[in-house]
């Protein structure tokens, strides 16, 4: 089988190549987002009034709802992998579909937030706070889109040709990425919305 290299676990660690590769990528992703958090701290310390005023203009209620949506999608992602691993393709489709709805819901709510800001003449170039806010949440939203695409592809494959149980590792690997996107939001949420 051509996918053996990615699906066969190493005898001594039990880890298959796909999972190892994803963790290497996620390690680099931690460093990528570290840069943003570092910039946030420096800019905040230099412009505390601007950051406090800016953060108070953000909608905490909408952001809390969005946090709940993303956490729920993490749950359904974990359940979809579990379902396929145990050979329940119907449940796998159901939970993957729910995860896709969660991802689209998150992006929809995020777009609503952006549109509300634009309608109040707040843009990334308005001040240092909003430059930081739009950069951090924008890159996070790009990561959500990046997770959504393979999810839709997987669901499409399952509905048309079927998704074999032996390929549950791919779902687990995508799940690792998806939970990481959730993790980044868990830190972005208090940093941008709550600490001021």
């Amino acid at each position: 089988m051509s996918t053996a290299a990615t699906h066969t676990a190493r005898f001594n660690t039990g880890i298959y190549h796909g999972k190892l590769g994803m963790w290497v990528f996620l390690a680099s992703e931690i460093m990528f987002f570290s840069g943003f958090f570092g910039a946030f701290i420096v800019l905040r310390n230099l412009n505390l009034e601007v950051f406090t005023a800016g953060a108070h203009q953000l909608d905490k209620v909408v952001a809390t709802i969005n946090t709940a949506v993303l956490i729920t999608s993490s749950l359904t992602m974990a359940l979809s992998h579990l379902a396929l691993e145990r050979g329940h393709e119907g449940k796998f489709r159901l939970f993957l579909g729910l995860t896709i709805i969660g991802a689209i819901g998150f992006l929809g709510i995020k777009s609503y937030e952006y549109m509300t800001k634009f309608s109040h003449d707040i843009y990334p170039w308005t001040d240092t706070f909003f430059a930081t806010y739009f950069t951090m949440t924008g890159f996070h939203a790009l990561h959500v889109i990046g997770g959504l695409i393979p999810m839709v592809w997987m669901l499409g494959k399952s509905l048309t040709r079927g998704y074999p149980r032996e390929m549950h590792h791919r779902v687990e690997t995508l799940g690792l990425y998806w939970h990481f996107v959730d993790l980044v939001w868990i830190f972005l949420f208090p940093t941008l919305y709550l600490i001021f």
Binding site: I15, A27, H179
Partner: peptide, 27 residues
């Protein structure tokens, strides 16, 4: 909680945790 349970770090080989602890140290 997310890393340990959802991302299976609790169940996978413990050496996999280096991929989190090393970049996290620098963070």
């Amino acid at each position: 909680l997310v890393a340990y349970i959802f991302m299976h770090l609790k169940y996978d080989h413990s050496r996999l945790r280096y991929f989190v602890t090393v970049p996290l140290f620098f963070f």
